[in-house]
Design a protein around this nucleic acid. Structure first.
Lengths: 153, 153
DNA sequence: TTTAAATAGGACTAAAATAGTCCCCAATTA
DNA sequence: TAATTGGGGACTATTTTAGTCCTATTTAAA
C-alpha cells in the first residue's frame, strides 16, 4: 500500500498544530492534549523531529518545542525522513551494494528514477500548504483512478 | 522509509524475466529457478498478479503464466497495486470516513494531492522501461539529496 | 481412462517491523 | 533546592509481512 507509518501521520498533525501557534513554545504535554495522542508517543515523535532539526527544544521549566523555521520551509519530505529514514521504495536503493537477486535483477537504476519522482512530489508540499484551508481540494473524481487498482489479497 | 514490500520487489523481478521471454508461458517452478525465489513465494505472487489481471494463467499440464499484455502497458503502479492494494500513503486516504483525529486534522485533502503525485510517478514507468538496459541511469550525485535527510532513529 | 503436471484458494506459522510505554538522567527556572 | 520539562534508550506488545503447506481443480498426454 506504500503506506506511511502512523507516527509520521501523527507528526503532521502535531506540526500542523504548532504551525498555527507559530510564535509559541509548546510543551509535549500541551501537544498531547491538543491532538489527543498519548503523551509518550508525542514525546517520541518530538524527539525525532528535534534530531532532524525540524524542531528546536528548550529544556527545563517553561521549556518545550518550537518550529526551527517557518512552515513554508518545512517540507513533507523532511517530515517523512525525520521519522522513517531516507525516502526509498526498495532496500537495494539504500544499500549501494545491490541485492542478492543480482543475477536476475538489473533494474535498480529504474527504482532510483521512481524514488526521485516520489521525492520531488513530497518535497513540493510544505507544512504551510497543509494548514491552508482546503481551497485546493481536488475533485473526488480524480481519485477514483487510485481505487481502480485495488485487489483484495 | 515509504518502502515497498519484498513481495512487490520480487514481482518486478519475476515480471522482468517474463517480459524478456515474452511469447512463452512460464510455469511457477521455472520462474522460481530462474529468479532464485522460493517456489511457494513465487506462487503466491503469481496468484496475486493473475487476480490483478497482469498475468493470465493456464491450468493443467503444460500450463503456466503469461503476461496479459505487452510490457509497455504494464505500469509500476499496477504491479504495486496488485500486491499491496491501493496506492495511498495514509489510512485516512482510503477509508472515506476520515480519521479519529478529526478535531485536530483537516489535512486529508493535502494527502490526496501527495497520493496523486506519487501515483502519477509510478504510473509513468512501465515494465518495458524496467527491462531496458540502463542508458537512463541517473547520476549518483542527484541521489545524495535523498540521503541527506536520514536520521538514525 | 488414468496419471502426471500444473494452477487456485485459503489456512497457517514464523519473522520482522511498528507502535507504544516506561524509566532514569540532564537542564532550567522560580 | 524543588518543580518542571526535555534527552536517551530499553523494553513490551501489537500488527504486518513473509513464507509455507495442504487440498481441490483443471488439463494434457500416455
Amino acid at each position: 500500500m506504500l503506506r506511511l507509518s502512523k507516527l509520521t501521520d501523527y507528526a503532521t498533525v502535531i506540526l500542523s498544530f504548532m504551525a498555527k501557534n507559530n510564535e509559541r513554545v509548546c510543551a509535549a504535554m500541551e501537544l498531547a492534549t491538543a491532538t489527543g495522542i498519548a503523551l509518550p508517543t508525542v514525546s517520541k515523535i518530538l524527539k525525532a523531529l528535534v534530531n532532524a532539526k525540524v524542531l528546536i527544544s528548550t529544556r527545563g521549566a517553561k521549556g518545550g518545542y518550537a518550529l526551527a523555521t517557518v512552515p513554508e520551509k518545512i517540507t513533507v519530505a523532511t517530515i517523512i525522513s525525520a521519522l522513517e529514514g531516507p525516502i526509498a521504495v526498495t532496500e537495494c536503493s539504500i544499500s549501494q551494494q545491490g541485492c542478492e537477486q543480482a543475477a536476475g535483477c538489473n533494474i535498480s537504476g529504474h527504482w532510483n528514477v521512481i524514488n526521485l519522482a516520489i521525492y520531488n512530489a513530497l518535497e513540493s508540499v510544505t507544512l504551510a500548504d497543509m494548514i491552508k484551508p482546503q481551497e485546493t481540494l481536488i475533485p473526488i473524481a480524480s481519485l477514483y483512478r487510485l481505487e481502480n487498482h485495488h485487489v483484495s489479497q
